[in-house]
């Protein structure tokens, strides 16, 4: 008798576990520090769906992980950058988005929809967009003394710079300094950028794509690359840290919500997308992490001071010479080769 009740208990636990797994979970895979805790809590409270949240610090790592997990362990919602949306779309890793299930898709900025990486937004819903530019600590560096990427090469910055730990962004800097496009697919240009970047390495103190604001706040770096949202957050903690749109052009990027083909909780993924599409939620996200929302409904709700904050919402002058990152096709192998050489090289 005892044994049987034990068995019953085990069966109950198993049953509850499996329904838990089937209905009430959302496996969300996002960039680190890219979604306020409060938004997850709000979603969980409202829907009763538990969010299992995992983070990555590079598109490459996210892609490798997604390729690796099987159907039983897959994620339900992922947030890749444009050039990985197109790559994953071409490779059949994504499930098409059923627009009928979306509420608020029509409020998204048409300028950010139907782009080259996903015509018709068949597979992706824009989440946030931003730029990779320069940060300086004005306590250590004279304001106005840095206006271009090439200024980072100055010998006074020996061991004082931060670069993001991101292949495409770092090469964007090398390529733009030489006057090439940050999306170049010409192996000669990429090699030239690599050679140029090797002369920047002595100035590099740290590569960081997890939370690039931290070395500036810790006092470890005086200048270097940063994402605008991280600069926005850093400025909030230490007003001496300022964001600069370099004259050669910042790198622009956009990250989108996509549903992997192997997702197990597709309906929950849609519910989360709809939650994020709500104007008040989009507003909360943009306010807290400092990237620009593609949602015009959220934009209308924003406080004027944030709406006019050029770090988060650049004006047309700031956007001069900027480029949106796009898929470079097979040239990515050339980038990878030189990226590895750049990082493994000793000085």
């Amino acid at each position: 008798m005892k044994f049987r009740s034990l068995l019953l208990c085990a069966a109950l636990v198993l049953a509850s576990l499996s329904t838990f797994a089937a209905d009430k979970v959302l496996y969300l895979y996002n960039w680190s520090e890219y979604l306020p805790e409060s938004v997850i809590e709000g979603f969980e409270k409202e829907t009763g769906i538990k969010v299992v949240y995992a983070t990555f610090d590079s598109n490459e790592a996210m892609y490798a992980k997604l390729r690796l997990v099987d159907a039983k362990n897959s994620y339900d919602l992922v947030v890749p950058s444009t050039y990985y949306v197109s790559k994953m779309r071409k490779e059949g890793l994504l499930a098409p988005i059923d627009k009928h299930k979306l509420v608020g898709f029509d409020k998204l900025d048409p300028k950010l929809l139907n782009r080259f990486f996903d015509p018709g937004n068949e597979y992706s819903v824009p989440y946030l967009w931003g730029s990779t530019g320069i940060a300086i600590n004005t306590d250590e560096v004279k304001p106005g003394s840095i206006t271009r990427w090439v200024d980072l090469w100055r010998p006074e910055f020996k061991d004082r710079l931060l670069l993001t730990n991101d292949m495409r962004e770092v090469f964007h800097v090398g390529l733009r300094v030489l006057g090439y496009s940050g999306n170049s697919t010409d192996p000669k240009q990429i090699e030239a950028a690599y050679k140029k970047l090797t002369t920047l390495v002595p100035n590099v103190r740290v590569y960081d794509s997890e939370a690039p604001r931290m070395p500036y706040l810790e006092g470890e770096t005086d200048a270097g690359m940063i994402w605008n949202g991280e600069a926005f957050q850093a400025h909030g903690e230490n007003p001496a840290i300022e964001y600069i749109y370099p004259e050669e052009g910042a790198a622009l990027w956009m990250d989108s919500l996509v549903i992997p083909k192997r997702a197990r909780n597709v309906e929950n993924a849609y519910r989360f997308i709809n939650y994020v599409l709500r104007p008040d939620v989009g507003k909360a996200i943009s306010e807290e992490i400092g990237y620009a929302t593609p949602n015009m409904g959220s934009l209308a709700l924003l406080d004027v001071s944030l709406r006019n904050n050029r770090t988060v919402y650049p004006n047309s002058m700031d956007l001069k010479n900027t480029e949106f990152q796009i898929d470079v096709g097979d040239a990515v192998k050339v980038y990878e080769k030189y990226w590895e050489l750049l990082k493994a090289g000793r000085d």
């Binding site: 490459e60 790592a61 490798a64 590099v204 590569y207 960081d208 070395p215 590895e340 990082k343 493994a344």
Partner: peptide, 18 residues
């Protein structure tokens, strides 16, 4: 500072990033 100081970093980068 993620500057590839150890063999372990090279291995990790090969598996995760490259």
């Amino acid at each position: 500072g993620a500057k590839n100081l150890l063999v372990g970093n090279i291995i990790k980068n090969q598996f995760l990033d490259a």
